[in-house]
Structure formats: C-alpha cells, structure tokens
Simulated assay, not measured.
Amino acid sequence: MKAIIGQQTVDAWCVTHTEDEAYEEWVQHYFDNGTMMWHPRHPEQLRFSLMFGGQARVGDYLVQNGPSDLKVVSPKKFAKEYRIVKTDE
C-alpha cells in the first residue's frame, strides 16, 4: 500500500503472516534476498537486518522510503502520523 506522511508518499505494509499471503513486490524482494525472514520458533516475529532495526511483530508496519530506508512503525504511531492512499485497484 502507499501511505503519506507529511508531504511524502511511502510504501507501507502491515506485517501479517498467513500461509497463502501474496506480498507486494517490494516486500517479497526483502524475503527473496534474505534480508527478511520469519523467526522459526516465533511465527509472529519478523526478523531482518539490524541496519533496518532488527525485528517487527505481526500488526506493526514496515515503511519503505527508498531502497535503503526501511523502518518499523507501531500501529498506534502509524494511525497517528500516516494516511493510507486509496487506489482504484
């Protein structure tokens, strides 16, 4: 999904973990290149490079503002600071 913070549009993903989930292309890229993976013993926990913060939990949001700028945002902060862009898809 796209979201707006201030005057900037960013890619955002609400972290979910289901067997049949199809991820957005930018999210799938992080899984495919090994940057991101589900914790083997804690399936509600997403692990990734410490460069990006280290972990997120189901319900958190990942926000990408460029290929090397990925951050974890809590649901409360996301609701307060971001606005989801509606698309015609």
Rank of each mutant, 00 (worst) to 15 (best):
N33S: 07
F48H: 09
E24L: 07
A22E: 11
P75D: 04
E89F: 12
K76P: 01
L70K: 01
K71T: 10
M1V: 09
T16C: 13
Q45S: 07
G59M: 03
E24Y: 08
I84M: 08
R57A: 05
Y82E: 03
K2V: 02
Y82N: 04
K77W: 05
E21I: 08
A22V: 14
S74Y: 00
M37F: 11
R57G: 09
A22P: 00
N33H: 09
W13D: 10
T87Q: 13
V85K: 15
Q8E: 14
M51H: 09
E19H: 09
W38Q: 07
Q7R: 13
V73D: 06
A12V: 09
F31M: 01
V63I: 15
V27W: 05
P43W: 03
R57W: 12
Q45Y: 09
K80Y: 08
M51K: 11
F52E: 04
G59P: 06
T35H: 06
R83L: 07
G53D: 05
Y30L: 14
E24C: 04
T9K: 11
T16F: 03
F31E: 00
Q45C: 10
I5D: 01
I84D: 09
Y23I: 03
V73Q: 08
K80M: 08
R41V: 13
G34F: 03
L46D: 04
D88G: 09
E89N: 13
Q7H: 12
V15H: 01
Y82L: 02
P40R: 12
V85W: 06
K76Q: 14
E25P: 11
K80D: 14
V15Q: 02
G54Y: 06
H39I: 06
V15I: 10
Q64E: 15
Q28C: 04
L70T: 03
V85P: 09
G59Q: 06
Q55K: 10
R83W: 04
F52N: 02
Y82W: 03
W13F: 15
V58I: 11
L46W: 07
R41C: 13
